[in-house]
Design a protein around this nucleic acid. Sequence first.
DNA 1: TAGGGACCTGCC
DNA 2: GCAGGTCCCT
Length: 308
Amino acid sequence: MTYTISLEPGELDLRQCVSCGQVFLWRETAPYLWLGVDGEAWFRVQVTPDGLNVESNVPSERFRRLFNLDVDQAEQEAAIRAAAPELEPYIARFPGLRLMRPSCPVETLCCFLCTPNNHLRRIMPMARALQAYGDPIGEVEGVVLRRFPEIEAVASIPEHELRAKGFGYRARSIPLTAARVAERGGRQWLTSLRAKPYAEAFEALIALPGVGPKLADCIALFALHKTEAVPVDTHLWQAATRLYFPEWRGAAITESRYRAVGDLFRAKFGPLAGIAHHYLFYDNMRNAGRSQTSGTMGRKERIDSSGS
DNA sequence: TAGGGACCTGCC
DNA sequence: GCAGGTCCCT
């Protein structure tokens, strides 16, 4: 089916949303043409000057839900500004950046298992390699689209297959984690965490092998829709130490500091903590590699005469 | 509890 | 050397 979604300026920036690392199964197959999957749904989205032309196997309500289009973005932004005027420039910089609501927690969990000690350039292809084990859900322009496989299917992928696909040590760890999830009840168990309070869901996730506090918060935020979750990765850590914890700049993220950052965000923003986090995360990620503030890590600043 | 090191692979 | 961490060890 096809439908048109008309958008106000700044209401939704699809490119930012699907390429900033909340989801990993979207790609731009031609300029302004995006192909993406969410659970058993697929979307072919043409970005136009005043909205989106969508072709999909699910109705527009599903698209709106995925991109959170029924929440008032302006209202949320106003609330964040009110709680923290210092975030104003970050909010202004990324109009249309929205927190998404992916529907398949298996997909989110497995994709994020690819992210530790890794970078986006490699994470995307790895996520797609896992997706290739899933069942076909449609075909667009000759391309077969597949949903993400069930957790049991991921658990049964032989290590050598993923090794051959360049997964490195994750070739063993990802199926292992998947097996632990399957033991607990698989998709049903993961989905049931949505009904639990954030703290409880967090504890359940962090108990999984390969899932530390950062992944637990990513899964809680994106897959379980726990908007109090604040994933403290290297990007948010840099932003948070710059703005709120100057005494920790350059220090390592310990467990207690991790908790302190999240608690501060939750105290300031309540259930909007995860949304506020997103602006800072995205800004820092985009500026990664550049001369970020008065850092001590500038490449060209290094006085190093050893040619080799 | 904080600090240090290893970990697959690919790109700077 | 280092990347959207995690685990294991002092």
